[in-house]
Design a protein around this nucleic acid. Structure first.
Lengths: 342, 342
DNA sequence: CTGAAAGCGCTTACAG
DNA sequence: CTGAAAGCGCTTACAG
């Protein structure tokens, strides 16, 4: 018999504790929960009994009584785990250790599967839901009638009355350009991904606005939209170098694109950052930190997003419902791919 | 008042359904649960009432009765989400839709935090636990006395009696070499990561054995151990090319290393795969698919690992406890970085 | 300060 | 075929 065969032994219950301590169940309950009306000596006896029996109160029974379970559902559509885990970690932090547990469900971008998970979670009486979208564009809200608070993170709900948390992509774009300007760059291009992504548009908007404020326009005359891939980063860079050989900085819309940019610059005989500074977006560690040189990148702060999502959810559960979309700031992480013009 | 303010309205209960259908609670229960002893017309009436009230049975109450909750805890230490999400997806598939929900907790490599999560999950009466390690080496088992079945995935337990599931790294190393041999390569080197990782040792062992079987030895005469980074992949490749300029294939111990290998080969004027074939390990999509050329890689099949972990856990919960470490096969994913010698 | 009783929402023998 | 009763493990008024 292995240790795990203990699965069959009944868990110790409050009445076991009460019996061992020689008190009633209600007294045992009060003693364990720190209620006032218990004699110190009695409380000690109960605590001791609980300790010896390794008593762990049944959270199901407690939840049934309280009408609150201390559980939350996190529904994601994250296929490679890049978004969900940081958001989960932020949420765990915000909920505080042990007070709340998180059900994580992956809907895989499928509305049916999502609906299915919502139903299962509601039958488990989660106190609330966090919905993490697959891409950072407005998404349809959960079907109406969900009886618990919902917070949308990363991808906002299309319903402006819902509580949504998104990254400030406009601000991130501005931040990237301002950093390049501070490095003394003046011929700055912007190569980015799929133009159907709101995030691509927003980052461009922020970038162009920051350039305008400095009295500049984009090198190459326009934003280079394409796909979120290294290959496009390379191709767009080659194109750019033909049209604007004197470019001295490139703002890439993602770290993947930035990786391609750096490679293509090397092949064209350009030094990074001496000749051309490069900045990425997402701060995806495995890509940004291992590039040659390591990439300066705009971090969208997913862990913080998760933390705030959890805070808003807790507030809503406690009846302090907010509403509307909240935009959270990005953060610049500087590495070797950007530096002042020597 | 937004829709989410519905949080305050009491959820509909079985007795609401019974009242609307004009039957007793017990009859309503039987009708909904498909028990035999209910007249068809009565059942229809109950089902209709449940439908109209959007009744969703309280899983807490059911779990309290059944002594089983249909929940499972997945404890991970995955900082970037690379392992947990595929494993979670496999587990979700294996558990079957809706029958089981998964609590995901991130211990972040901290034993205290892990212990903490275990306690919280046990108080929620999970039916079992899956523990996903931070790195694929044997790890200390959960503290004894956990009253539910535990399955260790990715990183095995140090206790050989525990149920553990690991990837066949020896087989993966063999597979990589056999593929290169099948491509007609004969001067094959192996550059890999941190030698304190059992996985690094295992992959090397498999590689060397496969070479021996073909009457060959490693190009360069030895395994090049280093770190799991692109930088090491580049450095090791330069070293190798000095010592063994005629190398015609490189087996890299990870995709990160393989990315560095490819870059360094290009810089040395070697074509991939014409002059040197390159194969990676992990099949980390973002790295492998975007390399130039895209990398052939050994996939450790995390989703399958999760699926099997869930199956073993379900079996143990049902009293069919297995024991010991089970080794799951890897899978070769071919891309353009390997090809037959022209 | 302590304990008997009611009840959270359900299921399952057990009578009728 | 239907329903009253007991009980899963706990907490919380309410008496004593």
């Amino acid at each position: 018999m292995s240790r795990t065969s203990g699965a069959s032994t009944r868990a110790t219950t409050l009445s076991d504790v009460a019996r061992l301590a020689g008190v009633s169940i209600s007294t045992a309950s009060k003693a364990l929960n720190g209620r006032e009306q218990v004699r110190a000596e009695t409380r000690a006896r109960v605590l001791d009994a609980a300790e010896r029996l390794a008593f762990s109160p049944n959270a199901l029974a407690q939840g049934l009584l309280a009408g609150r379970t201390g559980t939350v559902g996190l529904i994601t559509s994250d296929l490679d785990g890049r978004f969900s885990i940081p958001i989960l970690m932020g949420a765990e932090d915000a909920f505080g250790s042990g007070r709340t547990s998180v059900f994580l469900c992956d809907a895989r971008g499928d509305a049916i599967r999502e609906q299915h998970h919502v139903r299962a979670l509601l039958s488990r009486r989660v106190d609330g839901l966090i919905v993490v979208g697959a891409r950072p564009d407005p998404r349809p809200p959960l079907s109406p009638g969900v009886p618990v608070p919902v917070v949308y993170a990363y991808a906002p709900s299309q319903d402006p009355d819902d509580v949504s948390l998104v990254s400030d992509n406009v601000g991130g774009g501005r931040m990237a350009i301002e950093h390049l300007l501070a490095c003394g760059r003046r011929r700055i291009a912007h190569l980015t991904g799929d133009p159907t992504y709101g995030a691509a548009q927003d980052r461009s908007t922020g970038a162009i606005a920051a350039l305008e404020r400095a009295g500049l326009t984009l090198a190459g005359g326009t934003v280079y939209y394409g796909t979120w891939s290294e290959a496009w980063g390379r191709g767009a860079t080659r194109l750019l170098l033909q049209q604007e050989p004197e470019v001295d900085a490139i703002f890439a819309g993602s770290d993947q694109i930035a990786r391609g940019v750096v490679d293509a610059l090397h092949e064209a005989g350009k030094r990074v950052p001496e000749d051309v500074a490069v900045i990425g977006f997402d701060n995806w560690e495995v890509l940004a930190a291992n590039a040659r040189p390591p990439l300066t990148s705009v971090d969208i702060n997913l862990e913080h997003l998760g933390r705030v999502a959890a805070q808003r959810l807790v507030a809503a559960i406690d009846g302090h419902a907010a509403s509307g979309t909240e935009v959270l700031p990005c953060r610049l992480v500087t590495r070797a791919s950007t530096a002042p013009l020597g």
